[in-house]
């Protein structure tokens, strides 16, 4: 959270775009040691030839989103589209965990990903080859890497501390390449790794994944 919050400000400054941080509720109810990242040198940030500060020795500036000329508005929207395209290309961020030999891949984010990691470590000891993809950015979504996983892995298990907010993104990214399963709990009781390990094991049995 500390790392990503710093990163969010840097990205917002670099692209001049809003960045939204989705922190889950657990963050407010837990304590862990934190090492803050190094401060960056503000001189390395892009020059702001748009910033307001009084029209002294230069023409006055306007910051606005209202463009009443339809042609100007459309050109501006194309400019934004090019920016979003660049962000989609350059800013996808994810963690892969034990993917190399996996025949079941979990997709989880936030606290659920931490729990999933514990569960994966347990079932690995029992010989189940399970890995995980943890999207750090929900937009841009790591669709390409997930699609590539779909070429070699037949079963993907989405695990969320919700009733399924990411499952559609996962299905879209996989384009039907893998079977998508879901396990989620809607907030209230925090699932533990043992419980998720049992869910993984039952999927192995039910879908005969080990074969």
């Amino acid at each position: 959270m500390a790392d990503l919050t710093r990163r969010a400000f840097e990205l917002a400054d670099y692209y001049r775009t809003p960045v939204m941080i989705l922190g889950d509720g657990m963050m407010g109810q837990m304590m862990e040691p934190v090492v803050f990242p190094e401060m960056i040198n503000p001189d390395t940030l892009p020059e702001k030839d748009w910033a307001l500060g009084g029209a002294s020795g230069r023409p006055s500036r306007i910051i606005r989103s209202l463009l009443l000329d339809p042609a100007v508005e459309e050109e501006h929207n194309w400019k934004l589209a090019r920016k979003y395209e660049m962000i989609t290309r350059k800013e996808v961020d994810y963690e892969s965990y034990l993917l190399d030999d996996a025949n079941l891949v979990m997709v989880a984010y936030g606290t659920a990903a931490r729990i999933a990691k514990g569960a994966i470590n347990m079932v690995r000891e029992a010989g189940l080859k399970v890995g995980m993809l943890r999207p750090r950015t929900l937009w841009p979504f790591p669709s390409k890497v997930l699609n590539d996983i779909g070429r070699v892995v037949r079963h993907v298990l989405v695990f969320e501390m919700s009733t399924g907010q990411m499952i559609e993104d996962v299905r879209l990214a996989l384009e039907g390449r893998s079977n998508v399963h879901f396990y989620g709990r809607p907030g209230g009781i925090i699932p533990n790794p043992e419980e998720v390990a049992r869910v993984i094991s039952s999927h192995y049995l039910r879908f005969d994944i080990a074969k």
Binding site: L52, G53, G54, I62, I63, R64, S65
Partner: peptide, 27 residues
């Protein structure tokens, strides 16, 4: 104050104040 002035216009008819006032303006 012209060279140090920054004005924040409203949503409404007067959002276009930046078409008339020659100072820095930010919606």
């Amino acid at each position: 104050l012209a060279e140090i002035a920054i004005c924040v216009p409203p949503a409404g008819c007067a959002v276009l104040a930046y078409n008339y006032l020659d100072i820095d303006m930010g919606e």
